[in-house]
Amino acid sequence: MRKNRGCRETRNESFMESISKSLDLPGDTLPGYAHIELCGNREASVEGCKGVLEYSDCSVSLNTGRLTVKFCGSDLTITAMQDGSAVIKGTITCIDFGN
């Protein structure tokens, strides 16, 4: 039963993706996708953040629904966090994406 629901969700997502592709809609309008903006390597704003998975001054890992985004660097600070968006400031050296 759980397997069937998973298949249905995957089918729905691929169906949404195909509609998005055919209508030339931007990818961040789809549910489960985060919108990430970088300002150099000093600031990153993430929209669609669903929670913090890991937090220290050298790494911040965020849950964005389908993906986990991990910012590595130094002196990382979450300057604002509200309404599903987070702003991370500091020196960002790399960004990892995981499922």
């Binding site: 929670g51 913090v52 998975l53 937090y55 220290s56 001054d57 600070t77 979450i78 300057t79 509200q82």
Partner: peptide, 26 residues
């Protein structure tokens, strides 16, 4: 658990600003 604290704050609409972690102290 710092991460749990942050997530619970977010769920309860508590706005944390200039959040910084140093030596496991928020």
């Amino acid at each position: 658990f710092g991460e749990r604290f942050i997530n619970l704050c977010r769920l309860n609409n508590i706005q944390l600003q200039n959040l910084k972690s140093q030596n496991s102290v928020l």
